[in-house]
Design a protein around this nucleic acid. Structure first.
Length: 415
RNA sequence: GCGGGUGUAGCUCAGUCGGUUAGAGCACUGGUUUGUGGUACCAGAUGUCGUCGGUUCGAUCCCGAUCAUUCGCCCCA
């Protein structure tokens, strides 16, 4: 029993599920392509240090959620828990600093050892984009706009809400962090157990706490905005002005922070209330220090990632599979002929299904279940006369068609 | 990693206050219709009642563990 179960937190994607995933991924690819993002694929595993170095050694992702193993050469490898680190590594490995700005789209499986629940698997899929090498707020605006267009295109315009914040540049961020920690230490005893831990690891996260006892403390905490230096304020203003100019609605959320250490300046999150606790559907931000931190020359980046499973769940309708035309041969001779006919029709671009077994009735049923548009019935009698019966399965009308005209006839069903 | 719920047919779920042949709907198979689907009617098949252990004369039902799933915390896409 146990051996035949999929590993905890992993799932098979059968056709009905997969077609939803594909709709999400393809929409993302198509829309971001309009913005000039080109698809790339980086390995599903990397040297462990690619992630440990970049995600921050205190983040939960690195400390307890990575699938890390030693290969036969005793090198530490890790299944990627997110996409940005791999994209940045490939940016450096391939010397793409020559080609900035680099605009890449990616999709694929990510792995995190977490406790599974709705919208949270151990193997899950993300689509994402990164633009590397543009320092100005235009890139932030473009990236957010691409995300917004993508979500609108799959029909979630009214289901998601864009929240926005700025973490400021390194200087502002450090200044704020110091101020916040000093403040929180003054209220240490009243903090929740979780927040006491966070105070060491990632104090900004406390702003996001849902613990009741933390809330009044957070209310009166020094605000991030007051610690922003002039450059950071100006940068963020350009981002918000730009979004307003192109009509993308957003709400400012000064408590919005990022889980991974490499983010600065713009942080944004598209959330929904329809998925329970896992409401974040697409999130990202700017990461100015990341490329350098990984060993490249100082280059800035912005990007986002979206959870494919979460978006697929939000999809109201399952997209339709292409409707086939089913060929139903009866008898040995017809079987042989059907093989050729099917082959030719497929080469001509039609979706052709073949009824392989059972009597005519069974095969008709099967054709109907596959939502076939038509059935081509080919028996001994028909074969002798070089015709086939073409039956329209939507209205039940059928007619005899010469084998020579079959392709033309099937073309009538194309629409 | 922590706390709660759930686990019975392929799916959705009922049920047994612990008692010997465990049910329904949908789906499936066959038939009414021997070369014509969708509708209708008739008939049929299907379960180690998640797994392991305990209590008991007897456990699918009670207890424990375990696995999975789900909700929340945590974290995050």
């Amino acid at each position: 029993m146990a051996a035949l179960q999929p590993v905890r937190g992993t799932h098979d994607l059968l056709p009905e599920q997969f077609i939803r995933h594909r709709a999400v991924e393809e929409t993302a690819r198509k829309i971001t392509e309009r913005y000039g993002y080109r698809e790339v694929s980086t390995p599903i595993f990397e040297f462990t240090k690619v992630f440990s170095r970049t995600l921050g050694d205190t983040s939960d992702v690195v400390t307890k959620e990575m699938y890390t193993f030693c290969d036969r050469n005793d090198e530490s490898m890790t299944l990627r828990p997110e996409g940005t680190a791999g994209i940045v590594r490939s940016f450096i490995s391939n010397g793409l600093a020559q080609n900035v700005p680099v605009k890449h789209f990616y999709r694929g499986a990510m792995f995190r050892y977490e406790r599974p629940q709705k919208g949270r698997q151990r193997q899950f899929h993300q689509v994402g984009i990164e633009i590397i090498g543009v320092d100005t707020p235009q890139a932030d605006i473009e990236v957010i706009a691409a995300g917004w267009d993508f979500l609108s295109e799959i029909g979630f315009k009214d289901k998601v809400k864009l929240e926005l914040n700025t973490l400021g540049d390194a200087e502002s961020r450090k200044a704020y962090k110091d101020k916040l920690v000093a403040y929180l230490k003054g209220h240490y005893e009243q903090l929740s157990k979780e927040s006491k831990e966070r105070l060491e690891k990632n104090p900004l996260r406390i702003l996001d706490s849902k613990e009741e006892c933390d809330k009044p403390i957070i209310e009166n905490a020094p605000s991030m905005a007051n610690s922003m230096n002039e450059d950071s304020v100006e940068f963020f203003k350009e981002v918000t002005d730009g979004l307003t100019a192109i009509g993308i609605p957003f709400t400012l959320n000064p408590k919005l922070v990022r889980g991974l250490d490499y983010y600065c300046h713009t942080a944004f999150e598209f959330t929904t209330t329809e998925l329970g606790a896992q409401g974040t559907v697409l999130a990202g931000g700017r990461y100015n220090g990341l490329v350098k931190q990984m060993g490249g020359s100082a280059t800035t980046g912005v990007g986002w990632a979206a959870g494919v499973e979460r978006l697929a769940m939000l999809l109201e309708e399952t997209p339709e599979f292409p409707r086939p035309v089913t060929i139903i041969p009866i008898g040995e001779e017809a079987n042989k002929e059907a093989l050729k006919i099917a082959h030719n029709l497929r080469k001509a671009g039609f979706v052709i299904d073949m009824g392989y077994s059972g009597n005519l009735k069974k095969r008709m049923k099967k054709a109907n279940k596959l939502n076939a548009k038509a059935a081509i019935i080919l028996g001994g009698d028909e074969l002798e006369r070089s015709i086939a019966i073409v039956r329209n399965l939507d209205n039940g009308e059928q007619e005899e068609v010469s084998l020579n005209n079959l392709e033309q006839k099937i073309a009538d069903f194309a629409e």
